[in-house]
């Protein structure tokens, strides 16, 4: 059996562009990013277990401009994957397949993830008492 020329998934170029597709790709992209980002959470915990010096190194990274940028992206990726994941779970139980509903929930999930990101950072900065 010749296996060399079989079509392999995913072959996105055959589809007309639509937002659901972009959200689906972003879901996968944020998923992979979060998998890598989880290493930061592991580093944080391991450093805390190792002692104050190692913990201070993590804090130094977290409060640097680069660290803040990474954590901002991490927060958005997390909330996006969470909100869009709920959308996927609703599809799994058979809800919201009508194109207009699917698109509307997509926008809601996207907006909710931005709002949640802003709220989480406001909470963080408020409790820290400034920048």
């Amino acid at each position: 059996m010749d296996r060399s020329n079989r079509p392999l998934s995913p072959h996105l170029q055959v589809y007309r562009f639509q937002w659901n597709m972009t959200m689906s790709m972003l879901h996968r992209f944020t998923g992979v990013a979060l998998a890598i980002g989880t290493l930061l959470l592991a580093w944080w915990l391991i450093a805390a277990a190792a002692g104050p010096e190692a913990y201070a190194v993590v804090q130094g990274f977290a409060f640097s401009m680069f660290g803040r940028l990474v954590l901002l992206g991490f927060t958005f990726a997390l909330f996006y994957h969470l909100c869009n994941g709920v959308r996927h779970l609703l599809w799994d139980i058979g809800l919201g397949f009508e194109p207009s509903v699917a698109a509307a929930w997509g926008w809601i999930a996207f907006a909710a993830s931005i709002v949640m990101t802003v709220l989480a950072w406001l909470l963080g900065y408020a409790l820290r008492g400034g920048l």
Partner: peptide
């Protein structure tokens, strides 16, 4: 879903926490 919401709120509240 609940675990992530709990963890993110906790981490946000722990911003700048000492060791």
């Amino acid at each position: 879903v609940p675990l992530t919401l709990w963890l993110t709120v906790s981490v946000a509240r722990l911003t700048g926490a000492s060791h």
